[in-house]
Amino acid sequence: MTRSHTVRIRDRRTQTLHTIQVPEDRYILQTGENQGVNLPFSCRNGACTTCAVRVISGEIYQPEAMGLSPHLRKQGYALLCVSYPHSDLEVETQDEDEVYELQFGRYFGKGKVKRGLPLDED
């Protein structure tokens, strides 16, 4: 029998706290949806930062989280769409743009990309 863990999710967008039971072999995002919890997501395959959370306490396993660098994982960030609980957890949703900036900001050292004027057509 697969063990389940209590996962508490603080949703910063809605200022709500969700508590769900998640088996160790199930993704947290999908399990939450099955229990009626509406959380942010986009790609569902660990490639973007829409479902990013910061782990407050507990242990999470996310071998498929391509959208997070090892550095951000070590800082406690996780992607709920491809994360499994390995203990009871408490996490907090993050602003997608903030996580994206942490992930890729160093590549855009001159600040945010600005829209230019339309190209002249020949």
Rank of each mutant, 00 (worst) to 15 (best):
M1N: 15
T2A: 09
T2W: 05
T2Q: 15
T2H: 07
R3G: 08
R3S: 15
R3H: 12
H5Q: 06
T6S: 11
T6P: 09
V7I: 06
R12G: 06
R12P: 00
T16F: 03
L17M: 06
H18E: 01
L29A: 04
G32V: 01
G32N: 00
E33W: 01
G36F: 09
V37E: 09
L39I: 02
P40F: 02
F41M: 02
F41P: 03
N45D: 03
G46E: 00
A47F: 08
A47V: 04
C48I: 01
T50E: 00
C51P: 09
V53Q: 02
R54S: 09
G58S: 08
E59T: 01
E59I: 03
I60N: 00
E64L: 01
A65R: 06
L68A: 05
P70E: 13
H71T: 11
H71P: 11
H71W: 15
L72K: 00
R73C: 15
K74D: 15
Q75V: 14
Q75T: 13
G76S: 08
L79I: 11
L80Q: 05
C81R: 14
V82M: 01
V82A: 07
S83V: 07
H86Y: 13
D88E: 12
V91W: 04
E92V: 08
Q94N: 12
D95H: 13
D97R: 15
D97M: 14
V99K: 06
E101P: 15
F104I: 12
F104Y: 15
F104P: 14
G105I: 09
G105A: 12
R106S: 13
F108A: 10
F108I: 07
G109A: 13
K112N: 14
P118I: 02
P118N: 03
